[in-house]
Structures are given as structure tokens and as C-alpha cells.
Design a binder for these strands. Structure first.
Lengths: 204, 204
DNA sequence: TAATGTTTTAAATGTTTGTTTAAATTATCT
DNA sequence: AGATAATTTAAACAAACATTTAAAACATTA
């Protein structure tokens, strides 16, 4: 086996990841992927059997990228306040690095949830993280409002993710550049953190 | 002209709207639309010249549905606090009635913003609504934190919209039914309202 | 009723789609 | 070097695609 650089299989997977993220499953053709990878069309099927199989493999990776770190943070052994802030910061970094990821996941799951169920199942761990316990404990102690992890999750992830999903709309509506948008998003991130802490924690 | 029921043109447009909302532009074929409308395939092009033209016409209507009422509320002559609450409530009703609308708009704009620019331009009115003035005035008076309409907009629309965009993911992750989801969404709506008011308005 | 204009139809258009084939090339091993 | 296996290629495949055609069916008006 030639071991200089990437293998053809890796090249195709990386190209497919890039194109799927940008155009979605329906908007992507096998030829798009082959072109991006600079490889012969037949190789897609030689290595992955079908466009669908290749997609599912990539989707699994991307869903993992979308959620795994968040689950890990939720399970960290750190104070609640710190954990909330770290979660928001992580969400921000994640969507900044991979701006197409959230809308991609949302859209594919929205269009055909059934075929992705095996992958989605791993999201169930969210319910049983250390964060859930902390929310219960702190509420019992009267330190925070009683609130479920179901309602905290969108605060920590969704509010930031939404800003980036609507990036193009925002840029057109408010006539700003990409650079200005990032500044705005960062500003909003700080507001979100303040607002969450302000809401969840009760005054002593 | 026969005037019983809908005209063929209306039937096709309504069918196309339904299918585009569900499957997006790339995922929709001319035959899907013709089947949904129970009409001959050729009629799509007879009335609308092309799939693209039909799509653009429908997209315009849907973007209007997505934003017009919000702009109107922003321009209403009512107190700020009331306006914020009404905006959140309206967003909730809008996405509840048309659950596919938000992800559809987000995704189409995300994939090809250029071709939709003429339609998106009308979003610019957001910047110059009565709400913007109110935010400035109330901040000057020391009643609220200084905050721009750019940062209030996602609070009033995005936070609720995100919940519904991730509906399928939520239902799988937390193993709940559609009915339970709506209950959850309603609960979160109230949290959002409390949280926004709590954050924006300063204690006297 | 005959002539005219509009709407609907079945069939065909030429592309593009995902996938396969079989030959050509390259690498691996004895 | 020669045999064997793995990879890559150009070409072809049928199916699905958006769109067009020309004739048929319908409605309208003179």
C-alpha cells in the first residue's frame, strides 16, 4: 500500500464530507464528490458501495462532532455556573469552526428522521448527564430555579447555533460583512451567557 | 373560465408549496408536485415556465409569511414589555402552524443566498422599526439595558424557532411524542419570555 | 354551429442521475 | 521476473430528471 499522503478512501470521504455539508444529501451528486476529491467517479462506489452508505458514514461522524464534546462537558465534575459558561463557549467555537454543521444536521434529520434513527439514538445520553443531577441538587438547595435539562439544553446550544444558522439572512438583513457578523455573534454569545446565568441563578 | 373550486394554477402552487416545504428545492421533483396537485406534469411548466420560477414565487410568499407579521408587531404603538411578549407569542404560533417553514427558509438561504437576494432585501426594514426606537429610548431612561435590535431579534424569534427546527432531534433524544413535544415547547416559550424580560428590564 | 382561443393530455426530448462493467494500470508477493 | 491481487480508468447502463411538443379536449364567442 502507498502510504504517502491520504489513501483514496480518505480523500473521497473528506471530499464527500465537504460537499455534503455545503449542499446537503439531495443537492450533492456523485460527480460533485468525485470532482472535489479529484478522483474517478467509480471509486465512490468501489469504496463505499453507494452514495447513501457514504452519506450515513459521514453523517455519523458529523453528529458525533456536533454532540460528543457537549456531552463530555455536561459530565464534567465542575460547578454548575462554570459548566453553563463552558458549554456556551464550546458551542460557539464549534459552530465557528464548522459553520455548515448545524443547519446540515437539522435539515437532514428534519427531512428523513427515520433513516438516521440508529445514529440519533446516542443523543439519549443527554438526559443522564451530571448536569441533570446538578440542576436537581442546586434547585433543591434553592440556589437556582427548578429547570429541566430539556429546557437548559437549547439555552446552552440552540441560542448560539441559531445565530449561525441564520448567518446569511442576518448578513443580508443588516448589511454586514462576514467579519462584522463574527463580532456580532461574539457579542450575542456574551449576552446569552449573562442572560442564562441571570435567569437560572436565584439572588441570595 | 370555470370558477368552481381552485384554478389549476392555484392547485399547482398550493401543491408545490406543500412539497417544497417538506422536501426543499433539491429534494422536490416536478413529478412530486404534479402528483400532489393531481395534475399533468406539463402543467407545471405551462403555468410557471420552470421549476425554478415556481419555487421563487413560492419562496417569496413564504418569506413574507415568515417575517411580515413580526415586522408589523415591531412597528405597533404599544409599550416595550408588551411588544416583546407579543413577539415571542407570535413566533410560537407561526412555527406551530407551519412547522416546516423555518428550517425551509434557513436551508434554502444557506445553500444559495445569491439567488434569493431580491426577496431577502425586504428584511432590511427590521432595522428601522418602532422597536429600535423604543430600545434606544428606554435605555436612555435607564429602564432597560442598552441593547441593539440585532441582539433582541434572535431572542424574540430565534430561540423559539430553534426549538421547532430541532423538533425531530428532540423527540428522538428525549423519547417523547408529538403531543409531549408541543407541551415542552410551550413550557420553553414561557421560560424564554421570563428570561428576556428578566434580562432586558433593569430593577428600579 | 362554426371558428377561435385556452387548457389539458400523452408522448417524447435531451440531460443528468447513481451505479456497473470490463479492461487497464499499479502494487504485492513468491 | 512472473503470477496474483488491489486499484484506477473510460465507457456504458438504465432510471429519473426538467422541459417541450403537438395533438386532443374544452370553453368562448361570433
Amino acid at each position: 500500500m502507498k502510504c504517502i499522503g491520504q489513501s483514496s478512501e480518505e480523500k473521497i470521504k473528506e471530499a464527500a464530507r465537504k460537499v455534503f455539508l455545503k449542499k446537503g444529501f439531495d443537492g450533492t451528486t456523485s460527480r460533485d464528490i468525485a470532482n472535489e476529491a479529484e478522483m474517478n467517479i467509480a471509486l465512490t462506489n468501489y469504496y463505499f458501495r453507494s452514495k447513501e452508505k457514504l452519506f450515513l458514514e459521514i453523517f455519523k461522524d458529523l453528529l458525533n462532532l456536533y454532540f460528543q464534546d457537549t456531552v463530555n462537558i455536561f459530565n464534567k465534575d465542575i460547578p454548575l455556573r462554570e459548566k453553563l459558561i463552558e458549554s456556551v463557549d464550546h458551542t460557539f467555537e464549534m459552530v465557528r469552526k464548522e459553520p455548515d454543521l448545524v443547519i446540515f444536521i437539522m435539515n437532514e434529520v428534519h427531512k428523513a428522521p427515520e433513516r438516521l434513527i440508529p445514529d440519533i439514538n446516542f443523543l439519549r445520553q443527554i438526559k443522564n448527564t451530571r448536569l441533570s443531577q446538578q440542576l436537581e441538587e442546586e434547585a433543591k438547595r434553592g440556589n437556582i430555579r427548578p429547570i429541566s435539562v430539556e429546557n437548559v439544553l437549547p439555552m446552552l446550544c440552540g441560542y448560539i447555533q441559531f445565530i449561525f444558522m441564520g448567518k446569511n439572512i442576518h448578513m443580508k438583513a443588516f448589511e454586514v460583512t462576514e467579519e462584522q457578523f463574527v463580532t456580532y455573534a461574539d457579542e450575542h454569545k456574551n449576552i446569552v451567557k449573562d442572560m442564562i446565568i441571570n435567569y437560572i441563578f436565584l439572588p441570595k
